[in-house]
Design a protein around this nucleic acid. Structure first.
Lengths: 139, 139
DNA sequence: GTTACTGCAAACAGTTTGCATTACC
DNA sequence: GGTAATGCAAACTGTTTGCAGTAAC
């Protein structure tokens, strides 16, 4: 995710409005490396906006995701998690505590992948690398 | 997934029973490279067992997954897909038609991943590599 | 005969939508 | 003032469970 000012500007350029609720969501996500779920974000924002609804959080996350400001992680089958870090990196997922962590990707590896030839051209938009296992706490 | 005879033997050794429904599910999965969802499998088995329930399919898939005979793919956020191919390989996921394909993994890449050091030892059980994009048909 | 499986129906959890009210710009 | 966002409530989708009847061994 870009800095908050840039995100605000993009919203305004798209004819979208800046509300206190959205601003709080932006601030919560900016530089956040905890990979929160929509529910996590909702519960956190509730502390600032006691009357915010889950729907508002949900719709704002969709907008940010559609804009490419955050990425939606499909690593936990139970729920989606969100990551404002859109630079190339991999994730760890602990089977026990369900915590998601960041992992460095070697620069050369992903580009070496051999795409299936029989299907013709599969166009890769994003490469997701997930290491599933047990974290230091649980292992 | 091993050959059907071996799977049957493993079930028997575990005190589990071989029913016609389960046998049909084994046969459907064996050498299947279409990455079906539970619903896909259910609809296919219905042709052979018109009175089979989704629950039976669901529970058998769980058993096979817990035994390590098949893997559950969390690549499509909407539903789980199943893959009887448990050898190391990656998957493509088409954003448009939601089709899952197989992809070759270069042997050296996954082992080169740098695990997070600050967390101490994250123990990787399985590495999932997903290329998300558009397939030949949709792209 | 004993034990596990099947199939039903219902609960569950997370996600998504319609709509009237409210607030941004 | 016009347009979009909010928040509520309800619908939806896929997943999971409890239980009585049934079938494997």
């Amino acid at each position: 995710m870009r800095d908050i000012e840039s995100v605000i500007q993009r919203f305004r350029e798209a004819g979208l409005k800046i509300t206190p609720q959205r601003l709080s969501i932006f601030r919560l996500l900016k530089d956040n490396h905890t990979h929160p779920s929509a529910e996590d974000i909702y519960r956190e924002i509730l502390k600032v906006h006691p009357s915010i609804s889950f729907t508002t959080v949900y719709k704002t996350l969709q907008t940010l995701r559609d804009m490419g400001e955050i990425q939606e992680l499909s690593i936990n089958p139970e729920r989606a998690h969100y990551d404002p870090d859109i630079t190339e990196h991999a994730h760890t997922f602990c089977r026990s505590c369900r915590q998601i962590g960041d992992m460095a990707l070697p620069l050369n590896a992903p580009l070496d992948l051999k795409l299936p030839t029989e299907q013709g051209g599969f166009k890769v938009h994003a490469l997701q690398v997930h290491a599933v296992g047990l974290c230091g706490e649980c292992g």
